[in-house]
């Protein structure tokens, strides 16, 4: 049965269906919260009517799909959970089923009509869920970007001396982020030296060591030097046992020594007050 053939039936019952649909939504405290006032209720009821009739347009093209995706994304944005969305569709179906059964006496015909409608509603639901998932991944991506930024806090210790205290595990994704952030900051600050403090990195395996070497090499290429500090005994042992060649790296045990070395590179030093130069 073509869905468009159901349109007259839909038009006749539109107001009643939409009204009982909102009775349900407004009757539940969880969903009631989404409709703060009468104006909002009036507006969404209008939208709902055109949405409802849209189901029976018998048109299922790209514009239709995009419209449904937009609807799903909107619900994700306002924080309406998918269970309510799915529940709403189910409510629609049961409201319509009552009317189809009442108006189409032939059981086979009524079944076919309901089946067409069910197919369309299922399609709508899947589009909406797709939109939910995509929107969710989007916010997840934004959060991850924010976390990445926080995890690469490049600090200006002195004119032309930068410090990056690395804390936590380093995977290759983060390592790349670290390299890029560091390179951009070195150029922006015209840095002469970068101190990379790895005291807060729990595990340094071959991969992490390789990332550190690569970052050092890249910093070299743009014209600055890297000083590695905070190498614990454990980490030193691992690096050597793994056979990683770190001879190209300048290392200092403590951060303070790293800073002293960096200052030397820019022709400065730390001296007790009162000392004659």
């Amino acid at each position: 049965m073509r869905i468009a053939a159901l349109r007259p039936l839909a038009e006749r019952h539109m107001d009643a269906v939409v009204d009982s649909f909102y009775e349900l939504l407004l009757g539940h405290p969880d969903t009631r919260a989404f409709f703060p006032d009468e104006v909002t209720v009036g507006r969404v009821k209008r939208l709902q009517r055109s949405y409802f009739l849209g189901l029976f347009a018998g048109r299922c093209d790209l514009a239709y799909a995009q419209d449904r995706l937009r609807v799903g994304a909107t619900h994700e944005r306002i924080g309406m959970p998918p269970k309510w969305y799915i529940g709403a569709f189910r409510k629609y179906l049961s409201l319509l089923l009552e009317r189809i059964v009442a108006e189409i006496p032939d059981r086979v015909e009524a079944m076919a009509a309901f089946d067409s409608l069910h197919k369309l509603v299922a399609f709508d639901t899947s589009l909406a869920i797709d939109a939910y998932i995509a929107a969710n991944l989007d916010s997840l991506g934004r959060q991850q970007a924010a976390i990445r930024e926080l995890s690469t806090p490049v600090i200006r210790v002195h004119d032309r001396v930068l410090l990056l205290p690395l804390v936590g595990a380093i995977d290759s994704h983060r390592a790349q982020q670290v390299m890029e952030t560091v390179l951009v900051r070195v150029i922006e600050d015209k840095a002469r030296a970068l101190i990379l403090d790895i005291a807060g990195v729990p595990v340094v395996d071959t991969r992490v060591a390789d990332h550190l070497l690569k970052t050092t090499a890249a910093v070299r290429l743009v014209g600055a030097d890297t000083i590695l500090t905070g190498v614990s005994a454990q980490v030193a042992r691992t690096i050597i046992q793994l056979g990683v060649d770190i001879s190209s790296m300048v290392t200092r045990a403590r951060l303070s020594e790293g800073i002293e070395h960096a200052l030397k590179l820019i022709g400065r030093e730390i001296r007790p007050i009162g000392d004659k130069p």
Binding site: V186, K190, T215
Partner: peptide, 27 residues
């Protein structure tokens, strides 16, 4: 060698290009 851009440096290093024997400066 001076003025290498950050993205160029990162790309070369990611490709495994060795930097030994090259002297560099910021500008």
């Amino acid at each position: 060698l001076v003025g290498m851009r950050p993205e160029v440096a990162a790309t070369l290093v990611r490709m495994g290009f060795g930097v030994e024997g090259i002297e560099t400066a910021l500008d």
